[in-house]
């Protein structure tokens, strides 16, 4: 069974010549009990996709089914089977943690008693019991995220949408949240996770879909995506700039690929098909030639490399530019 099916999703903002296709023909299939990582820079269409799948935005094209219910024709049934934890921790900051969870429970149509009981359980589970009676505006960023996430788990939703759940969290809180997410998956939930953190997708997602400018540009497991970019490579930092060209000759000898030279940092990178054997050979050759090195390593491609390869940018570089674009687009859509 597939928990999420999307076919040819389209969302257009604005009209006429200024129209922007924020989501432009996205197909997704997420089997039950798995985690899909939706990866891409800000403004790529991740959040818009999530908003369509959670019935917050009408579809301009295509169709989508979540937990067996059509998003367009039966949105209320979709809402009753999903949990959404947004980019901004959407809890009422004037209410206490306990009051927030009680309210969300009531709005999920639980009885007052059920809602109270569920709130207690979630407060306990998310280590918020001590802070339960403080207004949530006094919470730390991590506590607020936990409360927000707890709010999305009230009815043990079959499908959980987490839109950049760890953005802005310190590393310890992030690892805590990862644990919670893994726990949900082992409990049978299906999760769609958007993130800008590649290591987050790497750590949590069974499959990854990379989108840019509203289109899917790659998909597969983390390993498949990395393999797409190429195998391992050897990276050498040469001590003496004079020795660079000789070092290039050495590296080129053991590789079919192109050696990339960064003269400024004296860093050479070359693909290798022979892994650690190749590395040993290179070290021997360099030593034989009396080329002194500062650093040498065998590197596996990271999802950062995948991203760079697919979009031509580092994801970090894009953030700033895309933030501005997103703001501009939002202004235009109003």
């Amino acid at each position: 069974m597939n928990a999420i099916i999307a076919e040819g999703l389209v969302k257009t903002f604005g009209s006429g010549e200024k129209a922007v296709r924020a989501v432009d023909g996205v197909d997704l299939v997420v089997p039950e009990g798995t985690v899909l990582g939706l990866l891409g820079p800000n403004g790529a269409g991740k959040t818009t996709t999530v908003r369509m799948l959670t019935s917050l935005l009408p579809l301009d094209g295509g169709r989508a089914e979540v937990a067996g219910h059509d998003v367009a024709t039966d949105p209320q049934a979709v809402r009753a089977s999903i949990g959404l934890s947004g980019q901004y921790a959407a809890v009422d900051e004037n209410l206490t943690g306990r009051e927030n969870l009680w309210m969300f429970g009531r709005l999920y149509q639980l009885s007052s008693r059920q809602a109270k009981k569920r709130a207690e359980e979630l407060l306990e589970q998310f280590a918020l019991t001590d802070a339960a009676d403080r207004p949530s505006k006094t919470y730390s960023g991590g506590m607020r995220r936990r409360l927000d996430l707890a709010g999305s788990l009230i009815v043990h939703p079959k499908v959980l949408f987490l839109d950049e759940p760890t953005t802005g969290l310190d590393p310890a809180s992030r690892l805590d949240l990862w644990d919670v997410i893994r726990e949900r998956v082992s409990g049978g939930a299906t999760i769609m996770l958007t993130t800008q953190y590649l290591e987050e997708a790497d750590a949590l997602a069974d499959r990854i879909v990379v989108i840019d400018q509203g289109r899917i540009i790659a998909e597969g497991t983390a390993d498949e995506l990395k393999a797409k970019v190429g195998g391992e490579r050897i990276e050498v930092v040469v001590h003496d700039p004079e020795a660079l060209s000789r070092a290039v000759d050495v590296l080129q000898r053991g590789s079919d690929g192109q050696c990339v030279v960064d003269e400024h940092t004296r860093r050479l990178t070359v693909p290798t098909a022979t892994g650690s054997k190749g590395l040993i050979q290179v070290i021997r050759d360099l030593d034989e030639q009396n080329i002194e090195i500062d650093d040498i390593a065998l590197r596996r491609p990271t999802l950062d490399d995948v991203f760079l390869e697919l979009t031509g940018h580092h994801p970090e570089e894009e953030k700033a530019a895309e933030d501005e674009q997103a703001v501009a687009a939002e202004g235009g859509a109003k």
Binding site: A77, L84, A89, A90, L107, Q109
Partner: peptide, 13 residues
């Protein structure tokens, strides 16, 4: 502004 309306709209209310 705070995204609460989004949260409410994602609930079966």
């Amino acid at each position: 502004h705070k995204g609460l309306i989004d949260r409410f709209r994602s609930l079966p209310m």
